[in-house]
Nucleic acid binder design. Structure first.
Length: 427
RNA sequence: GGGUCGAUGCCCGAGUGGCCAAAGGGAGUUGACUGUAAAUCAACCGGCAACGCCUACGGAGGUUCGAAUCCUUCUCGGCCCA
């Protein structure tokens, strides 16, 4: 993308919440490559869907010819950002933090390009330049440039001071650490722009201020809106909790499903904020979606694109195939890989021996898919049970031919519930 | 402390000796419809080796050919009087 178009493109996607002097920033961006950073605090050992906006924000800059510096907050994570919460954080111990940082670094390195070259991304960790600073130096070199008056004026601090829990001195100093990060990156790598979610505005501008006072240079700030759901609640939570980027916490299938199930009211917003496709294409996609919302074109396109970005092409394709089966498709033509993905999502049992002539009753009750043999009998009578694509007869007897590719038995109860039996042949 | 009413299936709530696995409603399940939405309609909705048997109407004991229903007692709860 042409550098001159970047801010307009971001604005068109609803990704610009606020910037320092927009004209100046636009002029700076068009004059040549800029280095920018976004910080991610390691409060868990994985980022989640809500972090995607920020990561992709950096990717957009990189594709426009700029150099991103994704930052893992090994230092700030020890303190905790006071914003967005009503009470004090629990501090993480050093081991947990180190573990979290290493995992998050791996995730940060997926969505931006680290290949050597002019736009190469650089992964940084603020613990590297923070842990060894003498306290007196910090107070003199950083603290001296801020008045408590302006610090307590920030919304995130204000709301905590007004709350019954108050705010500790530790969290109060978070802003200074983040400001110092910006200064450090500015001096070390020439980073001129810090981006982040809109709730980071105060912390980011603190850094802009510090750079100006210490070096006289102009630095820039840009924030994107926090992603929220239609009801205003936090984005990225599903029934099972947060939607993580780590496939061990949230499988590629579940990750994809989260986006497939986005409501029509929000899908337009999400598509524009998250898809890397050109805005014009997205406008056209959304028009087609609105003409036939039942096809979930926008949701599927977004889900497929993001799953592929985060988990890779192969995992995305398997997740898509698994969803097709789990939402009514015929499992008998599914590949072994798809069946394995399905087995990971639904209850499963190990099958010993031959299934020819075996009753499904015990399999279903043992797996909790039916409460009793009586219930299995009722389900059979209602034609609610299938093995592979075959509706089971009232006797509930299985056939050897019900085993699918790779030795999987796929039992379906009603529309939604599945049980996968794995024979010794299955992986 | 005295009196009185009550305790029923996941929830609410009928039932006051056999016709009671227990009305009705809600929830839930399945099917039809459908957009991986909602609504609507229908069936199901204790268990089992299943035209029968077992378990179950707060707990224990009793009366009776037969008890959710009657008696005794215990536990818990509502209300009234001290």
């Amino acid at each position: 993308m042409d550098r001159m178009d970047l801010l307009d493109d971001l604005a068109g996607r609803g990704l610009l919440h606020d910037t320092t002097d927009r004209q100046a920033l636009a002029a700076r961006l068009s004059s040549g490559p800029i280095a920018l950073y976004i910080g991610f605090d390691p409060t868990a050992d994985s980022l989640h869907a809500g972090h995607l906006v920020g990561q992709l924000f950096m990717r957009r800059f990189q594709l426009a010819g700029h150099r991103p510096f994704p930052l893992a907050g090994g230092a700030t994570g020890m303190i905790g950002d006071p914003g967005g919460r009503s009470e004090e954080r629990n501090l993480l111990d050093a081991d947990t933090l180190a573990h979290n940082v290493s995992r998050i670094q791996a995730q940060l390195s997926r969505l931006v390009d680290f290949e050597p070259g002019p736009y190469q991304a650089t992964l940084v960790n603020n613990a590297d330049w923070t842990v060894s600073i003498p306290m007196l130096d910090f107070l003199r070199d950083v603290g001296k440039h801020f008045t408590v008056n302006q610090m307590i004026a920030k919304d995130s601090v204000r709301s905590r001071i007004d709350s019954e829990h108050g705010i500790s001195y530790t969290e109060f100093s978070y802003m200074l650490l983040q400001a110092h990060d910006f200064l450090h990156l500015h001096q070390t790598y020439g980073v001129e722009l810090q981006a982040g979610a809109s709730d980071q505005w105060g912390n980011i501008t603190a850094g802009v201020e510090l750079i100006r006072r210490r070096t006289g240079a102009t630095a820039y700030a840009a924030t994107h809106p926090l992603m929220v759901r239609a009801d205003g609640s936090k984005f990225g939570k599903s029934v099972g909790g947060a939607v993580w980027l780590d496939p061990a916490r949230t499988s590629p299938y579940q990750f994809r499903q989260f986006f497939v199930q986005v409501g029509d009211d929000m899908v337009g917003t999400y598509v524009k904020m998250l898809s890397m496709r050109p805005l014009a294409e997205l406008v056209e996609l959304l028009e087609r979606h609105e003409a036939a919302p039942e096809q979930r074109l926008a949701q599927r396109a977004l889900a497929d694109e993001l799953t592929e970005l985060v988990h890779g092409r192969e995992a995305a394709e398997t997740a898509r195939a698994a969803a097709e089966v789990l939402f009514g498709g015929d499992p008998s033509r599914a590949t072994a890989a798809t069946l394995a993905a399905i087995a990971a999502e639904v209850p499963s049992v190990t099958l010993d021996g031959d299934i020819e002539g075996r009753r499904v009753h015990e399999l279903l009750t043992a797996a909790g898919l039916a409460a009793s043999n009586s219930e299995v009998g009722r389900l059979l009578a209602q034609g609610a049970l299938r093995a592979g694509g075959r509706v089971l007869a009232a006797d509930g007897l299985l056939r050897a031919s019900d085993l699918l590719d790779g030795g999987y038995l796929v039992l379906r109860r009603g529309k939604r519930d599945y049980l996968v039996g794995k024979t010794s042949r299955a992986g």
